[in-house]
Amino acid sequence: MTATFFHRLGAIVILLWLAVGLAACSNFVKGGDNRHNVPLAGSVVQGLRNMGSAPTEGMVVRIFKEEAVLEVWKKTGSGTYRLFKTYEICAYSGDIGPKFKEGDRQSPEGFYTITPGLMNPRSNYYLAFNTGFPNKFDRVHGRTGSDLMVHGDCSSRGCYAMTDAGIAEIYALARETFKGGNTSFQLQIFPFRMTTANMAKHSTSPHMDFWKDIKEGHDYFELTKTPPVWDVCEKQYIFNPAGSGALDAAGTCPPSVQNAALSAKLQADEADLASKSEAAQKAAERQAAEEAALKARGEAVNNFMSGIGSGIGGLFGGAAPATDATTTLPTPSAERP
């Protein structure tokens, strides 16, 4: 009976170990310290005060993969948000582009809502908060994944890894935001800074339609300095939908609240992107043609030199002319006295 008990106990331990190992960024409890309650540094509090904000005000977090940066924006007394601080991302998994399935080691992109329940004070990676992946958009597209975090330890398996000092400060900022009565903060994750130049550089990507979709939310924040209200309908993001109430992720989209400046920017950017993409395509075609011509010239030179080499080899390396065996060599003349 004792042996059976220990066999079962061993099996349970192995299963737990496997579960931790397979998770993208495990939230396994580490230690019993009070790191999640460490107060914000006085310099941080003063910095917030200097920009007309406070630790208890709302916040927005933005991530840009290609630039490997995380931004914290804080709400000010004017009601708009200002950039408070930019943190370097140590590592993220995969490449630019969204996450599709569990185990693809890809970090997510899109819009996420972070609530107190997603904060992880006992992360195995110092401190962490869960991105909330899969969100409504991800689920309607059948995307899967778990434990996709922003955490410390500078090591990533599908997450966004910060330094321990960086995540400690970000975590504390989020904690104080919740203490101020804010029920959530918005996390916006982009493949790169959403300029038309960057979009054109990646214009052949299969993710372009998705990036154009989330760019609207990005541009709204850039123009208004307030986070957009987002939802999902027709299997795509909708920003600032008219009316209230949750939408059917696969259902028909309602009208959205129009912003004239945003509409003008999106239209101008679309035209600029088309122009830049065409120019980039022509440049790529020219480069390909030049590389093909260079290769052809190289092959021609190689063939020419090979032909010369064969000719020279035939001239000096061939069989010597046969000598007539009956030929009599001249007798040397006698030496005069």
Rank of each mutant, 00 (worst) to 15 (best):
C90I: 08
E57S: 15
T80M: 09
D33R: 08
F210L: 13
P254Y: 01
E216S: 07
K265C: 08
G52V: 01
G245C: 14
T323S: 15
S277I: 05
C154I: 02
A289H: 01
V44R: 01
L247K: 15
G318M: 12
S26R: 14
S146W: 04
A260W: 06
A249Q: 11
M199R: 03
A319Q: 14
L315R: 08
G32S: 12
S93D: 10
D104Y: 05
L83R: 10
Q46V: 13
L247S: 09
Q281K: 14
P228N: 02
K212V: 01
P228D: 06
K85M: 09
S277M: 07
R105E: 15
K215S: 02
L16F: 13
A250M: 08
E57A: 14
R122C: 02
E234H: 14
A300F: 04
N198Q: 15
A264P: 01
A11V: 11
I14C: 09
F133T: 06
F111Q: 05
L83H: 08
A54G: 12
H141P: 01
T163R: 05
L118H: 14
A3H: 10
Q236F: 03
R139Q: 12
D164R: 11
D164A: 09
V38Y: 09
N240A: 01
F129M: 07
D138C: 06
A322T: 03
T328H: 06
L22H: 07
M119R: 10
P332T: 04
S53T: 08
N50V: 13
W73K: 03
A161R: 01
L187G: 00
A250V: 14
T328I: 12
M149I: 07
S26C: 12
R82P: 02
G132K: 01
G94N: 05
L223S: 11
A54E: 07
L18M: 15
